[in-house]
Nucleic acid binder design. Sequence first.
RNA 1: GCCGGUGUAGCUCAUCAGGUAGAGCACAUCAUUCGUAAUGAUGGGGUAGUAGGUUCGAGUCCUAUCACCGGCACCA
Length: 651
Amino acid sequence: MADITLSLPDGNQRSYPAGITGMAVAEDISKSLAKSAISCTVNGRHSDLSQPITEDSQFAIHTMKDDAKALELIRHDAAHIMARAVQELWPDVRVTIGPVIENGWYYDFDRAEPFSTDDLGAIEKKMREIINKRDPVTTEIWDRDRALKFYEASNEPYKVELIGMIPEGQPIRMYWHGHWQDLCRGPHLVHTGQVPGDAFKLMKVAGAYWRGNSDNKMLQRIYGVAFKNKDDLKAHLLMLEEAEKRDHRKLGREMDLFHMQEEAPGQVFWHPNGWRIYVALQDYMRRRQIAGGYVEVNTPQVVDRKLWEASGHWEKYQENMFIVEVDEEHAREKSVNALKPMNCPCHVQIFNQGLKSYRDLPLRMAEFGACNRYEPSGALHGIMRVRGFTQDDGHIFCREDQIESETKIYIEFLSRVYRDLGFEQFKVKFSDRPETRAGSDAVWDKAEAALLTATRAAGIEPEMNPGEGAFYGPKLEFVLTDAIGRDWQCGTHQVDFVLPERLDANYIGQDGAKHRPVMLHRATLGSFERFIGILIESHAGKLPFWLAPRQVVVASIVSDADDYVLEVTKALQAAGICAEADIRNEKINYKVREHSVGKVPVILAIGKQEVADRTVSVRRLGDKHSNVKSLAEMITEMRALATPPDLIPSD
RNA sequence: GCCGGUGUAGCUCAUCAGGUAGAGCACAUCAUUCGUAAUGAUGGGGUAGUAGGUUCGAGUCCUAUCACCGGCACCA
């Protein structure tokens, strides 16, 4: 067989007979390398060490020191080892797929009895046994018929289906460790013993639909996490524990921000503390929008189905709308209405009043629009996913040639707001046409191209999210992350040629003829509820002073200070600061602890000395020490702290 | 909506071969006036999510239902 040349990372070249395996090369280079090798990269492709190399290649051996590669392989093989463990424990279980995900993997099984969390311990134990066997990994490429017959014979219907999905011409890789077999494209470790037995943990069991389709059977999914060593696993588990403390549902209760109850699932009862955050945020958004050239409007909650039929929502979203039927006994005429699930059709109604000229465009219309959607029960999540919420909604009516500039202006608007609120970084996703949609392909081509061009012009290269657009148009999603790493769409910007058509919006052009405007749907926070949830979690409840629901507590150290405490509190309140007096008969330690736990950003402690000097002792949340300041100095400082970012003088 | 889990005092949890509930914190009262993350004593507070059933007897077992939690599906 002809020789091939391998170019190594250090620049050296070595010749080997074609068909040599990565492992053989590693052995040739050094014994110790062969011992620590886990995989290789051949011409940019991550591969098993057992794969034959047949052509001249750029070649590199990986060891456990290559973090990304090592973790991928550990998690991947842990998935297979778990599947084997499950089948050894319960031979009636059918296997399906088990990909690597962030921090770990999952594997979906078909089993008559669901797994219980008690089973996880048994599975982990069995996995360690398999790891200790150090079974070598072998792979073979089979032809399609042989693989199909094999899986039919071994009664693995999901594998049969998976082979059917592998495109013609792609190799069908069969994989073994020990006697256990799976279908897998690889790559894999050299033997099962390379998975660290003390650095993985099975986390949870859950249902999941076969191939992600709710028409299919629900399978049993087991999630696991795996790392290179015990310490990394420990660190990860500790991080999860810490994240739990930042959960907005927990902090919402502890800080007395809001509550929810059975009688109104998916709707928020805002307490005074939480409502202060909401109002501060809304005031801020209102100022930003006015500065951004928006006009603010307000539209009805209960709207006749005729409008929803015209907009297309009745047909597509009826199941998710709160329907309000007026009883005939009490009405002249029976009518069927829906609580508005969004504001756009109402905004078109305002646009449609009177004749609009091209001179009126772009018309930027905003509303803090309260919406209700009957979300599926399983989708509800704290205040992040609710049935009653308020959007900072807006619709820009413009000409087609204004889409690009308006999109660019909007992205800058949103970036400014996110920066003000502490989110320097956020994901941007671009979602194009879904399968069921309104409007012709030509219109979609136009809308997608315009949106994408404008996004790139704003300096953003979005993540692609194929098929996920709204039914009327493509969209940009601005995504933020919660405490445990779940993504939430907050802002959005969507191009819509369809709704103006359906609701017959038009303007008089320069040519004196009627033209159809384009609508840009946009929301920056998305919903106040979700955004506040994200704010709470990202700040762990310690909101910036201007958004903090309780800003200052003035606490007495001795009761002789009470009068002065009340005086200081009043002075702060007169300066527009949210201040409370704490003159309870408690020790200062107790008060400091309680208000620290309550995430109050500033505590002013006042004892005999402060009364005598007409000063205050200022303690910032988290600080160990306090600073004594004069009353006037402190109030100036608090005033500055309380100024929202858009009102801070720039010079 | 689907799969699994949970539901006991305001909060966090205990009770459990089925014999009509208990702790800490919080709250109230009293004492203490104590300088930056929990002062002490005393006291009040629960028809155990809801509705049925089994049983002499159910928070504890069964059924239904609601809500919540973790995923999946959905997200105009």
